[in-house]
Amino acid sequence: MPFVVTENCDACRYTECVQVCPVACFHADERMLYIDPDLCVDCGACAPRCPVKAIYDEADLPDTLAHWAGINAERAPGLPVIAKRQEALPGAAAKRAALGFT
């Protein structure tokens, strides 16, 4: 099962996860990242790198976040690939703190 980026990434767009992806399956819009499920090799290297715990193995998605699998599959293919670390969005640190991650 592929990995899925969920709502915690929205308005943060931390990119530590893309640095460890062996197949460049991450895509980005102006607000967040998405994983292309057709390219993801299920290595799991990305999930522990996310500072806001936004990435899940699709098999482990909580029911409340299950719809994100479809959002990633729909959005990722039409967006540019992101394979190098970029600065997080303005306000990302505040959102991270609000989510309870330090």
Rank of each mutant, 00 (worst) to 15 (best):
P2W: 07
D10L: 14
C12L: 06
Y14H: 11
E16M: 12
C17I: 05
V18P: 02
C21W: 07
P22W: 06
P22E: 13
C25M: 06
C25N: 05
C25W: 04
F26V: 01
A28V: 05
E30D: 09
M32T: 06
L33F: 01
Y34T: 00
Y34G: 01
D36I: 02
D36Y: 02
L39A: 09
G44D: 08
C46Q: 12
C46K: 07
C50I: 05
K53D: 15
K53G: 14
A54V: 03
Y56T: 09
E58Y: 11
E58A: 15
A59N: 14
L61C: 12
P62C: 08
T64F: 15
T64H: 14
L65Q: 13
H67N: 09
G70Q: 08
I71C: 03
N72E: 04
A76T: 05
P77G: 03
P77V: 02
G78K: 05
P80H: 00
V81S: 00
I82W: 00
K84M: 10
K84Y: 10
R85E: 11
A88L: 03
L89Y: 01
A94Y: 05
K95R: 15
R96A: 12
A97M: 03
L99G: 09
G100D: 13
T102S: 14
T102G: 15
T102Q: 14
